[in-house]
């Protein structure tokens, strides 16, 4: 017999009861088994897996769209070469020049402005003619403005435009060759900006700032009947793009 402290008293119960075992009846496992199929059903509905698969699909679609984004590429020669035939060397100021294609002015107001400038300074203008008596556009180079390549201007005239401006006809063999491809498009950034006249054109403007692909995600055209969708490009799904391209061309 000995005195018992609280700790010894607790230890007595712990030693005897902590590992105490009692055999359960079979009904307990049977009850557990009844509830386990319900657990399996819950596991068969993988919400987390569905969410993860959805996220993966969205991310994959985004990556795929980013990869299919068409880069803007200029086809053909990147520079316009103006060649002068041997006969043309007699013409004062005529020489072979290399002009960046992006500096070609194509719009009529620009041509008018340059032509007017040429008339004011005729002595500094080179007039070239084509062989075989053909009427060719006149190329006038304002050499005063050629301080560097970026300031070079070139005026192109043809017989159908700008009446009153002289067209040179000659039977010699001098000619000026403008090496370029007719079907090459001038990049959008150098085209004159279109006016925003409708909601469709406003959407086109906004989309063109965001979507740099040739075929935009959505594009509208203004017609007599109003604004219509001319093309949709969702990556996998495209429609109306051919018609839109033909309209552009």
């Amino acid at each position: 017999m000995h005195s018992v402290s609280d700790d010894d008293f607790d230890q007595l119960f712990q030693d005897k009861l902590y590992l105490h075992e009692v055999e359960p009846t079979d009904a307990v496992w049977a009850g557990i088994k009844e509830q386990l199929p319900a657990l399996r059903k819950v596991r068969n509905f993988p919400i987390l897996r569905l969410a993860a698969a959805s996220m993966a699909a969205v991310i994959g679609l985004g990556i795929w769209l980013a990869k299919t984004k068409e880069p803007i590429r200029l086809s053909g020669n990147s520079e316009i070469e103006i060649e002068q035939a041997p006969v043309a060397s007699k013409i004062a100021g005529a020489e072979v020049m290399t002009i960046p294609r992006s500096k070609v002015l194509s719009t009529t107001p620009d041509r008018m402005m340059l032509t007017k400038a040429l008339e004011e300074q005729p002595q500094k203008t080179a007039k070239l003619s084509s062989p075989a008596g053909k009427v060719v556009p006149e190329f006038s180079v304002d050499k005063n403005n050629i301080t560097d390549e970026s300031k070079l201007t070139l005026a192109i005239k043809d017989e159908n435009e700008t009446p009153g401006i002289e067209t040179v006809v000659s039977d010699n063999s001098s000619h000026l060759a403008l090496v370029s491809e007719d079907d090459t498009e001038i990049p959008e950034e150098f085209q004159k900006p279109k006016k925003i006249r409708s909601v469709g054109s406003l959407v086109n403007f906004v989309v063109s700032k965001v979507d740099k692909r040739k075929n935009k995600i959505i594009e509208f055209v203004d017609s007599d009947e109003g604004t219509m969708v001319s093309g949709v490009n969702l990556g996998l799904v495209k429609f109306g793009t051919k018609e839109k391209n033909s309209n552009h061309n």
């Binding site: 590992l19 105490h20 075992e21 009846t25 307990v28 496992w29 557990i32």
Partner: peptide
């Protein structure tokens, strides 16, 4: 099961309640 039923028996008022605890616990 037998060891865990021993645990439940100390808290339950009788064996039936202890077996219910054991089933819920597993």
């Amino acid at each position: 099961a037998s060891r865990m039923l021993g645990v439940c028996m100390r808290y339950a008022k009788d064996r039936f309640e202890a077996e219910d605890m054991l089933q819920m616990g597993f």
